[in-house]
């Protein structure tokens, strides 16, 4: 999940008797499956939670450009280079749709980006792991995008219209991303012994972080119930995780790779795979900033944002001066300086 641990400000769901008339009417619209649009009335906590969730999702796309961008210049063939370049570009595009969706709720993109580089905003824990070999690019597409799709397909039906519509576009591209990741893994698994070992090593390192992407288990997920009532979360974390595992294990088998979980077993009675215990200490450590790459990722984003400030200022000054020339009645913008 690209938005994890989204704080709704509510740790329990309120009954109808605790709601104002407006809130009750809002909830009935949600219950009837009506999409909420930017001009509609909405409770402040719904608005705030959505801004948090959508901006976290947008930040995840933008920070997520870094681990994969790390390998564009080293992609092992020109075809792989072109595909990876296009994929990372798509992620930037996803960030743009999502920031726009958050802007319909009154947030500003610059403020959201400021929050990100200042460390006030979260993004998915998964992007704080390093991409050490080319196989990691395959593993990210296969596992990380695979886990993300499972989370995101239901969000195409979420209650907030602009978010739901952004997700429809994003999901189409994500499924291409997942296929390209699996295709990289397939080439490695069918390659030399060294390539196969590279693929197995990547699976060993990315499996558990990918399993954790769906967020804490249901009993530890205090905000889920409210988000589900608001229909900005459709399935529970554990349901999504199970779906990911059930889908992915046969894919690993097909590759001839071993999922790094000795307790992994098909449970005939449940009709699902059982897995071993998840190391939630690792998850919370990464969320709190202690993953292998948290500092690097934020520093890189902050540096890029700071290095680009003079460019953005120049573009704004030039645009203001051009507008001024076209409409001399406008007040002279004070930020512009004559060169």
């Amino acid at each position: 999940m690209y938005a994890q641990l989204v704080d709704t400000g509510e740790t329990r769901v309120r009954g109808a008797e605790e709601m104002s008339a407006e809130e009750q009417a809002f909830q009935s619209r949600l219950d009837a499956g009506v999409k909420i649009e930017p001009r509609d009335w909405m409770p402040d906590p719904y608005r705030r939670t959505l801004v948090r969730q959508i901006s976290q999702h947008a930040h995840s796309e933008v920070v997520g450009m870094l681990p994969e961008g790390n390998w564009i210049t080293r992609a092992p063939s020109l075809k792989r280079k072109a595909i990876l370049l296009a994929k990372v570009q798509d992620e930037g595009g996803h960030g743009m749709y999502l920031y726009s969706a958050a802007e319909t709720l009154g947030a500003s993109r610059d403020q959201m980006l400021d929050d990100l580089v200042a460390g006030r905003a979260k993004y998915s824990s998964i992007f704080n792991y390093p991409t050490l070999t080319w196989a990691d690019i395959g593993a990210i597409g296969w596992l990380v995008d695979g886990a993300a799709i499972i989370n995101q397909i239901p969000l195409c039906r979420c209650s907030y219209g602009p978010y739901a519509r952004a997700m429809v576009r994003i999901c189409k591209e994500e499924s291409f991303h997942q296929r390209q990741g699996y295709d990289i893994m397939l080439a490695l698994a069918r390659g030399t012994a060294a390539q196969k070992a590279m693929a197995q090593d990547a699976l060993n390192r990315w499996w558990w972080p990918a399993v954790m992407m769906h967020g804490p288990s249901d009993e530890a997920s205090v905000h889920s119930a409210q988000s589900m009532q608001w229909k900005i979360k459709i399935h529970s974390n554990d349901e999504l995780r199970q779906k990911f595992i059930d889908q992915t294990v046969p894919q690993a088998d097909f590759l001839g790779l071993t999922v790094p979980d000795p307790a992994l077993k098909w449970n005939e009675a449940r009709g699902h795979y059982d897995i071993g215990p998840i190391d939630w200490d690792e998850f919370y450590a990464v969320i709190k900033g202690n993953g292998p790459c948290n500092r690097d990722r934020l520093k890189t984003r902050a540096q890029a944002w700071a290095d680009g400030a003079w460019v953005r200022e120049a573009a704004a000054a030039h645009a203001a001066r051009t507008a001024q020339a076209a409409q001399p009645d406008l007040p002279q913008p004070s930020a512009t300086q004559e060169p």
């Binding site: 933008v62 450009m65 870094l66 961008g69 564009i72 210049t73 280079k81 370049l85 296009a86 990372v88 570009q89 930037g92 595009g93 960030g95 743009m96 920031y99 890189t300 540096q303 890029a304 290095d307 680009g308 400030a309 460019v311 953005r312």
Partner: peptide
């Protein structure tokens, strides 16, 4: 491609990649 993820604005990241 060295600019990937580090351009002055998201729009520039997209355009450079194009």
């Amino acid at each position: 491609a060295e600019w990937s993820g580090k351009a002055p604005a998201l729009e520039e990241d997209m355009a450079l990649a194009n």
